[in-house]
Design a binder for these strands. Sequence first.
DNA 1: TAGTGGTCTAGACCACCCC
DNA 2: GGGTGGTCTAGACCACTAG
Lengths: 251, 251
Amino acid sequence: MSQAAANFNDSQQLPQHLPLYKQIANALLDEVATGPNSGSQPLASEREIAEKHGVSRDTVRKAIQHLERQGVVYSEQGRGTFVAPPSVREMTRSLNSFSKDTELRGGLPGQIILSLEQIPASFAISNILGVPHRQMIWRLKRVRTVDNTAVGIQDSYITIPVTGKLSADDIVKSGSLYGLLAERFGLKPAEGLESLGATSASDEDAKNLGIEPGTPLLTCERITLTERRKPMEYCEMKYVSSYRYTVRIQG
Amino acid sequence: MSQAAANFNDSQQLPQHLPLYKQIANALLDEVATGPNSGSQPLASEREIAEKHGVSRDTVRKAIQHLERQGVVYSEQGRGTFVAPPSVREMTRSLNSFSKDTELRGGLPGQIILSLEQIPASFAISNILGVPHRQMIWRLKRVRTVDNTAVGIQDSYITIPVTGKLSADDIVKSGSLYGLLAERFGLKPAEGLESLGATSASDEDAKNLGIEPGTPLLTCERITLTERRKPMEYCEMKYVSSYRYTVRIQG
DNA sequence: TAGTGGTCTAGACCACCCC
DNA sequence: GGGTGGTCTAGACCACTAG
């Protein structure tokens, strides 16, 4: 590692030696956020960025690819690297979806926990989650809110070690279910598989969401996988049509 | 480039010198598809694959990252690289969505063209597509089918050079609208932004889809961007609830 | 023609997992 | 300890864009 790179490294006080390319990515992110980069002007060239930070060009490329995956910038051969239009950045969906996505779009996320209980896994659920039939799992039902208005219902089935404990208080305090699961049980979500469709609100849905029965709702089923691609959560969601669910598809 | 790499290159007869890492990716894809790789066994290590094909380890890593983005494999530090569960592979959504996605899920995609016409862009459409108000653009309405059953309606607004021409015949013959636009006008989609919700079928929707008015439908609006992130298409879609729209979210 | 991103190499060291 | 993937380097050549 070059001298300059070592300095760069030391100048950051980050947990556990964040990889160089992520440090560069964060530095670029700052420039993009603060700078008057309207989008038509290209960023500095990879060679310039490399020299400026005292790292190899390959490391800069990794940083740019990292940002490209998040929809922050895009590159064109022979022309340069550009800041992506705001619409692209806002559309990019993260795994931690509800809270982060809502904040990204400028809303205030919230939740009302309807119930939290331990139940034996039915055939259907045990099959999806890959656990034995009737093994005890957790079930969490929540109403999600944006700016204090109910926009959806989430019904989660979660596999955690049998000795594990959860309480509604913990979830409310932690703010993020995934954050809590990662911290307490080492369950880190790596990938989510979602299936979307439409349905009509049942009487119960209508009561929870404060709408008329029969109103069309967006439905979403999700299986969340750990780093080893083992299912850790199955979740059924229903959203009112004013809540927009966004997706970015990369070529 | 090493001797072995040159041989590997020569042994493939591909258009325009496909990059080495994509050749390696294809080779690995073949092994995954044909081999009895049930998923619990790791692939050969990066160093072994590199030696086998006579390329550098970095090129192998690029190939694996390429497949990882497509949901074909995933890597774990200290353990190895593994074949992703079939559910993950099937969920991965491509930009070319309808035809490819339907085939990937084992269905026969089809289309019925309802209308194809040149119209002046309204305020709303010109704003989204970034063209002058009342500039002539194309509008294409289609019913999409899976196994000869209507599953959705697509209403597309497309910007192509004013001298450009389109005919329903071309689209049917070509099979893929995007393929046609790329070939004839150099319009290559690089990214898609989608917004999903739910609605009720209007009388017209009901007639086109052969369902009852009032049935809940999945709605999807998409803006398709070119490589330079200029809008090339705006499309409104409505799908019956039996058609599953799937998404994979990567951590 | 000069500058940009895209690909590729050969070698090094580190972090992590498992025996 | 031995193997795996993760990061990083310094240099090379190619493909493409633009003046």
